[in-house]
């Protein structure tokens, strides 16, 4: 399996090879799990991090997702692709983590959310405030800032559809929502990102 595929949906495109590894993984073979980890870790990390926007938290969530997959591999019947199944576990884990974080912040209020240096308020990158936007020379930062104005569910749709290359149906399956919800979130996210990234988009 090749880890560097652009789409990330099917690391190698070689389903036969993957089926062999999965069969070995079902038997609990370490080398099979090492291969699965090597193939999916980076893309999975990227998807979860896009949702959580916290690297340390992402690391824990991804590890927990692999552990769950390890425990539940006998329940995987191959009705969907393994990647879809694994992403579904990871993003649901991320969603649960976000929920418990919000609950903790709501009831305790002791640990204010640490603002990343990239977390600039929407007004700061609004095209109406072009002067401020021009100061943010780094395109990557601009993208991350624009994404941070979307909520986690919308970011997950953008990541899965546009970056990881999943189809609309697969994205719906992973996020356990309707196809229409995915399309609506994608539409809304694209419109918002289009406005926020207009300058950098034109340059690109």
């Amino acid at each position: 399996m090749n880890q560097d595929s652009a789409a990330g949906v099917q690391p190698s495109g070689d389903e036969f090879q993957e089926a062999l590894w999965l069969e070995a993984a079902r038997l609990g073979r370490d080398d099979a799990w090492a291969e699965i980890h090597r193939c999916y870790y980076k893309n999975l990390w990227s998807a979860v991090n896009r949702m959580l926007q916290d690297e340390a938290l992402t690391e824990d969530v991804v590890q927990e997702a692999f552990l769950k997959a390890y425990r539940r591999i006998s329940h995987f019947r191959g009705q969907s692709r393994f990647g879809t199944w694994l992403y579904s576990i990871a993003l649901n884990q991320a969603r649960d983590t976000l929920r418990s974080l919000k609950r903790r912040q709501k009831y305790l209020g002791l640990f204010p959310v640490q603002q990343d240096e990239d977390d600039v308020p929407l007004e700061a990158i609004d095209p109406n405030h072009a002067g401020r936007a021009a100061e943010l020379a780094d395109q990557g930062r601009l993208i991350r800032q624009a994404l941070s104005t979307l909520d986690a569910e919308h970011r997950a749709v953008v990541e899965l559809r546009l970056v990881q290359g999943f189809s609309t149906d697969e994205t719906a399956r992973i996020l356990k929502c309707k196809r229409g919800t995915v399309l609506s979130r994608l539409f809304y996210s694209c419109q918002k990102l289009k406005i926020l990234l207009q300058d950098s988009h034109e340059q690109a």
């Binding site: 990390w45 395109q139 990557g140 970056v163 694209c190």
Partner: peptide
């Protein structure tokens, strides 16, 4: 267009 930008960013910030 968005896909290009996002994938470029993902490649730059990935693990």
């Amino acid at each position: 267009g968005l896909q290009d930008l996002l994938r470029h960013d993902a490649a730059a910030t990935g693990r």
